[in-house]
Structures are given as C-alpha cells and as structure tokens.
Design a protein around this nucleic acid. Structure first.
Lengths: 226, 226
DNA sequence: TGTACATCAGTGAACGCGCGTTCACTGATGTAC
DNA sequence: TGTACATCAGTGAACGCGCGTTCACTGATGTAC
C-alpha cells in the first residue's frame, strides 16, 4: 500500500450530484461572505475567525471565499472599509446637532456594529494601503473635523487639530471601554446610553476646567504663551 | 503494521540524558513563562499567542507551563494582574503633580508595557473573578479617582464619577489610538510624547468649552438643572 | 546520619483536531462567429 | 438561431502544520523516622 499518492481525483463521487439543494453558482457570495464574517466576529472575536468557519456559515465550500478575497486580510479590509463608510454616513448627518449629538452617534455605531468597529481600529488585521479603505477612513475624519470646527470660535483655528484629537480620544476611549465591558462595573445600574452620555459630557466640561486651572499654575516653560 | 497503539513509553530514549545542558528543575519557571509570554505578545499579539511557543521561548518542554498556570487564560490572568499593579505603582506617585502629569504616566505605561496593557483591557482573555486581579484593578481605579478628586472644587463632589469616566475615556482612547497606530498619520511629524500630550490637554480644555457652550443652548429637557 | 517514601516539577511521545493552501476538476455563464 | 470555446465561480479531496491535551514516566527535592 505505502503512502497513497495525494493527488488522485480519478474516483469522483458523481453520486447525488443531481439532487443539489442549492445552485452551483451562489450569485452573491461576496456579500454572503462578508455577512458571515461579521456574524462570526461578533460570536467569537477577530482572533478566532477562520476562513473555513466563514465558508461554513455562508453555506459554501471552504475554498470558495478565496476566489473573492484571497485571504483573511482581504475580508478584514473589506469590512474595515465598509465600516468607515457606514460611520461617515451615520455620524455625518448628526454634526449639525453639535458635538455631543455626533458623539452619541459614534458610540451608537460602535455598539450597533461591534464587529465593524473592532476590525476598523486594528490596522494590523487589514491592508492599510487599500485605496477604497483609505478614502473611506479619510472621510470619517472629515466628519470629526467638521464637528469640531463648527464648535470653535473665530480665531481658534489653531486649536482644530489638538481639539479633534482630544475629542476623538474621549469618544473612542468611551466607546471601547463600554464595548469591552470595562465600564459597567463602575456604572452601577447601566442607564440608557443617551442619559449616561450626557452625564459624561458634563464630566468632560468639568475635566476641561480642572486641566485649565491646574495648567495655569504651571511654570512658564510648559506654557510659553502665558 | 496497522496503527501503532498510541501509548508506548516502553522505549525511552535514555541517550544523552547525562549531558543535559540545563538542570531538570528550572527554579523560576513561573517568572520565565510570564516573561516569555510578554515577549511573545509584543512580537505577535494576543491572538497568536500559543502555549507551545511560550514554552519554547522559556526553553522548557511544552507541557511544563501548564504545571503553573493550567491554561492560556491562567497566563493572561497573571499578566493582567501584574499590569494593574504596575500601573497603580507608576501613576500613583504622579497624582500630586496634577491630572495631566498622571495622564502622561498612564500613556507612558501603555507605550512601555504594550503587552500588559493589551491584555488588561481585553477581559475576555482572562478570569475576571480572580481575587488578586480584582484587587489590583480596583487600586488602579483608586488612583484615577484620587487624581480627579484633587482637581475638583468644593461642592463638586457629585461630579466625581462622570468626570472620572470622562478622564479615563480620554486617556484610554488616546493611549489605544496611539498604541495601535491610528494616530500617527494625523500627527505629521511625531513629536515627543510630553509635548504632544500637553497640546492634547489644551485640546481637552477647548473641547470642554465647546460642549459647555453647545449644551447651554439646549432645550431644558436635557438640562433640567438650568 | 542514613534511609524510605511522598510530593513536586519537568519530559517527551502520541493523540485528535481544525486550520490554510493547493489542485484537478465540474457546472454555469458569457461571447464570438 | 446555433455551436464552439473561454472564462468565471464553486467543489471536494488531500496535503502538511501547529496547536492543546493527555499520560506514563523521570529527576530532584523535601520530610519523617
């Protein structure tokens, strides 16, 4: 017998090839794979995602997804790009309502699209140079800038970048802490998001005041403009 | 031949058992495993961590770590607990220097102990009910509260929780965005951390002002106290 | 001071499993003439 | 309208690999008497 040579497709099981329950061509496999991957990520996280399981979920042979995405990074890239588009869409229309309104949109996005969100901010998972992704991501940042810009007063243009980074940090930190369950134990009874967010926004005001007071009392070296 | 029964320890390789290059008993394997795991996490991330690779790094048989930790979650629990202790230690002594000083400590911790940090905020990786871990985590929070409390003015006691959550969010968001490489592209040339942080702190002040202005102009329903 | 025995710490072979990848193939859908 | 051919989309068997786990064992270190 010895080791049976490993390419021997001679004996093909032609059996039950007649009663196939689904068409040979899926039709919208790309969509189906993305959906399956999202569901799988929500179930087991990005680390445990396997191409085979995704294929299984999509009801397709395990080699099929590779036709559309190449490898896992391909799927992640697609998910991240779609995520940024979605985020732009969902927060863009809230900008006119003020920063807190837009922030609420961001947090809601994170909670409602957990899988997208998780992938978007783990650049090691996807191809960061993908043009579609880059465009989608940039337009997300645009929304942030606009939201901050509208809140600035005349003459504060220099503050756009630092304030944007501050806003994004606060927002992103809040969303991730909430998402990964690091916040609840400190919340007591978890209030509806809307109320809680307004409360934290008030905390942001207090925080700004504290920093202003403390930094005002510093040696000039760190406040050359004062 | 057929399938060779799978328990056959009869033929033991007694060969080269004399010229062992390391002692049979490691002596401080627990330490060595933790160090190896940290190095491995920094190299490949938490998702790719394997017990076998950790053992290999520690120069020990792949079954040995299980003696001390049971499984992967055991190692992660140990790392998370140590991480929180370290964080408490490194930021605790900065509290008297003000919020921004303490914040800088937090961010520095995240950058200098990347592996600890990554594990600490992924509770799904470890046993969240481990008593040592819980104690260590709680004392980290204590530091945060103290830092915020010292900045509050008399009569602002109610603001402790919202302000703490706001501060932690901002801090944590900034650290993670920085750590996972989501911030650099927006930084232009990456300035020394210290300077950059002070700039973002100034952004936090501006941010607080914007929120205050915008929320002041809202319908009473959302600002019942006004 | 010696000896027997228990316990602890680490070994290494074998297991079964699921994974990503490859590959020759098949079934369906255009497309040229 | 028909037919030949190319291209695309999906299949399924087999591969080699690394993993976690189990297990009987071994080597070293206490500990009782």
């Amino acid at each position: 017998m010895a080791t049976l040579g490993h390419r021997c497709p001679t004996i093909q099981t032609v059996a039950n090839s007649g009663e196939r329950d689904r068409p040979y061509h899926h039709g919208r496999l790309k969509e189906a794979v993305v959906e399956a991957a999202l569901a799988e990520i929500e179930a087991v996280g990005t680390s445990e995602l396997s191409m085979r399981e995704v294929a299984r979920r999509a009801g397709v042979s395990h080699a099929a997804p590779a036709h559309h995405f190449g490898d896992k990074a391909g799927i992640f890239t697609e998910i991240a790009a779609r995520g940024f588009s979605l985020l732009t869409q969902e927060t863009g229309e809230l900008v006119s309502g003020g920063l807190v309104e837009a922030a609420a949109g961001y947090v809601r996005f994170a909670l409602e699209h957990k899988a997208h969100f998780e992938v978007m901010f783990r650049p090691e998972l996807y191809r960061t140079d993908d043009p579609e992704l880059v465009a989608a991501r940039d337009s997300s940042f645009e929304v942030l800038y606009r939201a901050v810009e509208e809140g600035l007063q005349p003459g504060q243009e220099d503050e756009l970048m630092p304030t944007s980074v501050a806003a994004w940090s606060a927002l992103h930190g809040f969303a991730t802490l909430l998402l990964y369950g690091n916040l609840e134990p400190k919340l007591g009874d978890i209030e509806p998001l809307e109320v809680y967010l307004v409360e934290v926004a008030r905390g942001m005001i207090t925080l700004g005041e504290i920093i202003a007071r403390q930094e005002a009392g510093r040696p000039a070296a760190r406040n050359p403009q004062s």
